[in-house]
Design a binder for these strands. Sequence first.
DNA 1: TGACGCGCACCAT
DNA 2: ATGGTGCGCGTCA
Length: 314
Amino acid sequence: MHKVVLSLGTNIGKKHENINRALYLLSHSGIRILKVSQKITTPPWGNWNQPDFLNVVVTAETTMSPVKLLRTIKEIERNMGRTSGHMEPRIIDVDIILFDNLIVKTDKLKIPHPSFRERNFVLKPLSEIAPDLKDPETGKTILQLYRELLLLPFMGYIDTPIGPFYVAEKDGQVLRTSFKNMRGRQEYTPLLDKLLKRLEDYFSGKKVDFTEFTLNFSMIPDTYRHIYTVLMKIPYGAVISYSQLAELSGIRKGAMTVGNAMSKNPFPILVPCHRVIRKDGKIGGFSAGKDKKIFLLKLELKDSFFNVFPKGTY
DNA sequence: TGACGCGCACCAT
DNA sequence: ATGGTGCGCGTCA
């Protein structure tokens, strides 16, 4: 007999009935439900333009293998009318969170669920029904993981034409932005919500001013912080060279310092390092890839991009 | 603590 | 291509 943890979610139709129906189907498919958590309502994450979710977590027993369990779950989802894909509204979604102490990492199946440690709607209810259960990957108990989750910065993202863009918040300030995946509590706050909507506007080509957001500069060296502050005064659609920015910041012969500061910019887009270009008219580097810098400059400069960067300069 | 060496999304030669 | 440049960081005493 294997002990498993499943997470169920729904955000279409009669949500309580969907959950109950899924539990009924599971329990008649060779999965013995042991404990069912409270149902909790969770705002959508990832794509917020959809209804709230209703979630529960269950502990259960089964003799099935992980792959067989996954197939059974997918079949139940299909039978209940699930058609939509990832990050879309769905009538039912069942995830395998834990399976004994097993660690599985294949394309089709990942156990433990790769992001369950960042999800309140899993850890909170699970810490009520199985606080002492251990995560085989970290060796920590569910209760420990839940306590740690509460200390994690809030994190969200939007899909942009140049890939996902991540933002994190701590104590009402923007902690980081990034084109790379970030760890954090997968939940929106009013601040993240507002920021992501502004970013959506920005990526759709609107002129957006991000200076209303307070950035957390606490772990940033003074010189870099100063350079970032000066750079934030360079408006949308304008560009400046590394050496000019150094001069504006009062650092003589500081082009390299500026380059270093740009390469470590913790707030891409909000601190507009993409507006800093080489003195010889070339584009210069960008941590997330030069193609992204070119996209952002085209976005801001529109047609005049080709005047500022004639053929062969990038 | 402080000095030293290294590396860097640059720049002028 | 090459070497000067400022700064932060890791290392060593």
